[in-house]
Design a protein around this nucleic acid. Structure first.
Lengths: 236, 236
DNA sequence: GTCTATACGCCGATAGAC
DNA sequence: GTCTATCGGCGTATAGAC
């Protein structure tokens, strides 16, 4: 179910002599950074300029901006799936759920421009529109299965029907998607402070609280706190 | 606390002879429509073209796109406040809450581009950035007060501390803000079907369910159903 | 694989005629 | 109030040298 297709498109018959760790990768990285900072306001010109490479060089690696976005969307889809997709028969315990929350937040933060500028970035490109749609569908389904799993094995004070779980999943998806941009402009400090992350995780986890066993939930919260602490140590 | 400032800026000393219901208003209306459809992809050129008026004509009424956006943001702020802001001492009953949900959803749908393209639309304009921030702060506060009011007079199975209410308000705000665009691209039918609205209202109302009295909540849901039915009759 | 140079078109914005 | 004309800037894309 992975969307990955191109293994390394710029490989012309013979393995390219590795000059300086390909510009292709640098382009993707720069695009993510700039798109996150200024959304749809940037274009290929500014990506190239930011890297100090020429226009034509960029166009050698990607035919246009949307090709770059397409590759990034694929990575987003894969990386998120790697965290959220449950293996058959898997049972979600505290650590697993904490991993979903923290890794999910990390990935969605890293690629936050993708969802916040989705309309502008995908309109007019059938493949992008389709893949973004599939990403949304897959994402909600991942979350749905996690929620079903958790409320089944650790039911809480409020019971959740399958339909409720579906709605909870959709709510959570919209919330997760919208949280990064919201946090960015709402909090004073523009950068991702661990405090902001902690608050975001608290908000997300809260939506599930009434439907899971109180003890399970408080252990999840402790797990999230430990994660945030590790972030603090990391940034200190 | 209203942001309205300019009463009718294009009134030059003497009341203008009403030629054909001012282009100024038509410009605002067209901008809302086009921005909702294609986000930041459109500009002054396309707004003017859409109306069949010239570039210069548009620039007579507004000095640039951001001036148009600024006016729209002011209207959004005012219209939403008119529904959500509680009067001193007011107690939120079922009808009031249903009104908040339905009118809030209507307003946020009408101006959905504003939040989904906020970054692109406001960066670089200090006044826009400031007002958008104030809008967010005010919005969350309106929601916060409503939630506090409801859980105080109609407490449910889960208790909500003031801090919980704060978090719930922020969650709800992000959800409400993100829901229109999400619904638009996730559901098959591009237009606002009453079914889509009903689903959105169900999602929003669900976040509060565990914290309010079950009977109160089911009456709210019935009220929302009646609202959706009136939409159906209206569109039929 | 990487880069320079260049062409084209669209958009935002202003000046000034009707 | 409404229009035409026009300028500068930026983004996309291609051709072709190193």
């Amino acid at each position: 179910m992975s969307l990955s297709k191109k293994p390394e498109p710029a490989a012309p018959t013979v393995r390219p002599r590795n000059k300086r760790a390909g510009n292709r990768e640098r382009i993707v990285e720069a695009a993510i950074e700039l798109l996150n900072a200024r959304g749809n306001l940037i274009g290929t010109t500014q990506v190239a300029a930011h890297l100090g490479i020429s226009h034509g060089n960029l166009y050698y690696h990607f035919s246009n901006l949307q090709a770059i976005v397409l590759e990034i969307l694929t990575r987003l889809h894969d990386e998120l799936g790697q965290t959220l997709a449950l293996r058959p028969g898997e049972i979600v315990d505290v650590d697993r759920l904490v991993g979903c929350y923290s890794n999910g937040a990390r990935v969605l933060w890293r690629y936050r421009f993708m969802v916040s500028s989705a309309l502008e970035l995908t309109t007019g490109n059938a493949e992008l529109e389709h893949n973004y749609r599939q990403f949304t569908i897959a994402g909600i389904d991942w979350v749905y299965r996690i929620i079903c799993n958790v409320v089944k094995h650790h039911p809480g004070p409020m019971s959740a029907s399958p339909r409720d779980c579906r709605n909870l999943a959709e709510n959570m998806w919209v919330l997760w998607n919208g949280w990064p941009r919201h946090a960015e402009h709402y909090r004073e400090d523009a950068s991702v402070s661990p405090a902001a992350i902690a608050h975001g995780l608290e908000l997300i986890a809260m939506t599930l609280a009434p439907y899971v066993e109180p003890d399970f939930h408080s252990r999840v919260r402790r797990g999230l706190s430990r994660f945030v602490d590790s972030l603090k140590r990391q940034s200190a």
